[in-house]
């Protein structure tokens, strides 16, 4: 049990899909965050698209997913 023997039948390809799905789920959760919360700390008149932390997060997750897809 401690060695996760019950997952020994899972192939490396399936395991890779588990990781890619995880990044997808995290990305979805980030997109669900209210925009107001993302910009908290910046005055309304100073808010620009490049301050949108959802964009930052999705970009990082996309790069991460492409690394795992490639290798």
């Amino acid at each position: 049990m401690f060695n996760f023997d019950w997952l020994s039948g899972v192939s490396q390809e399936t395991a890779k899909m588990v990781f890619l799905s995880l990044y997808g789920v995290i990305g979805l959760l980030v997109l669900l965050l209210p925009t107001e919360y993302i910009y908290e700390g910046i005055a309304k008149e100073d808010r620009h698209w490049w301050n949108n932390l959802k964009l930052w997060s999705i970009s990082v997750l996309a790069i991460l997913a492409s690394i795992y897809y490639h290798f």
Binding site: Y39, E40, G41, L53, W56, V60, I63
Partner: peptide, 14 residues
Amino acid sequence: NEWHAKASMIFGSA
């Protein structure tokens, strides 16, 4: 401010 606190972690992750 709070935006910089959050952004620091995300920038760090990149």
